[in-house]
Design a protein around this nucleic acid. Structure first.
Length: 271
DNA sequence: CCCAAGACCTGGCGGC
DNA sequence: TGCCGCCAGGTCTTGG
């Protein structure tokens, strides 16, 4: 279940198997994902060699000489590396079969995920073209957040989760980063000071980087194929802890809904 | 342009 | 056990 750290962990898990490998078949058992998986993809990649596996936000980019397969894991998607003869389960919708006998299996019970083929440069594809900067890249900092947010009246948390502002900040890490930065998630984005946007940018980077580090410890799950994507064992301060004591001041954490997403914060530590 | 709500799905959980 | 309502890590699309 993919936040950016898990997508990156997935990328690291599958890249060694895919890069340089030749595709033998593209098997679609259930094409009804977010958008129908085009049958024509098979003909495009069969017999082709994977050049690179990259990531942009929460999208995985499987790059061939002639085009790119974009993969999004949605809410419940996962990719595993399996051997040729492993029988598919109920929600194992797509396999990328490799000549060497491995197969990369896409499982997604809720089918919010996507597999899309594009032949123009991937960064120009409509799904990627207007994405904000990578949170761990050099473009992303407090001054960027400050500049972009002036005049915005959305709650800072909803605004931070908008992938056109910055990619990869999902519900868990939006909650955690705002706690670390001491900012009330309900506060209008345009009313957060430059100084506190700097704290927020740092918090986003730290929380994601540390989660990626921990995601790295579950790499073998993707290879071994037991299907457990490995939850982040990182200490969560607020996410899922509504009503429990704040780890900083001990008062009860408050749960609210913001843009239909569960939000937890400390009313004393976050302003 | 900005923002909130709706849409897409299945499964797991607690409560009765 | 069974059924029901609610919740879930995302984000594109629509409507005001």
């Amino acid at each position: 279940m993919p936040e950016l750290p898990e997508v990156e962990t997935t990328r690291r898990g599958i890249a060694p198997y895919l890069e340089g490998a030749e595709v033998e078949a593209f098997e679609v058992r259930e094409p009804r994902l977010r958008w129908p998986v085009e049958a024509a993809i098979a003909g495009r990649i069969q017999g082709q060699r994977v050049e690179r596996v990259e990531r942009r936000g929460k999208y995985l980019l499987v790059q061939f000489a002639e085009g790119t397969l974009l993969i999004h894991l949605g809410m419940s998607g996962s990719l595993r590396v399996l051997m040729r003869d492993t029988p598919p389960g109920k929600h194992d919708h797509v396999d990328i079969c490799l000549k060497d006998g491995h197969r990369i299996r896409f499982c997604d019970p809720r089918r919010f995920g996507a597999m899309v083929w594009t032949e123009s440069p991937a960064s120009q594809h409509r799904l990627l073209a207007s994405l904000g900067p990578e949170p761990l890249g050099s473009e992303f900092d407090g001054d960027y957040l400050y500049r972009r947010s002036r005049g915005r009246r959305s709650p800072i948390k909803s605004w931070l989760m908008d992938s056109h502002v910055v990619v990869g900040v999902g519900n868990i890490y939006a909650n955690e980063a705002l706690f670390q930065a001491g900012i009330d998630p309900r506060r209008a984005a345009g009313r957060v000071s430059r100084q506190r946007m700097r704290l927020l940018a740092t918090a986003v980077r730290e929380v994601l980087a540390s989660a990626i580090e921990q995601g790295g410890t579950t790499l073998r799950d993707f290879v071994g194929g037991d299907g457990k994507p490995g939850y982040f064992s990182q200490q969560l301060h607020v996410y899922g802890r509504g009503g429990q004591p704040c780890t900083r001041c001990g008062e009860a954490l408050v749960g609210v809904q913001l843009a239909q997403r569960s939000t937890v914060y400390c009313r004393y530590c976050q302003r």
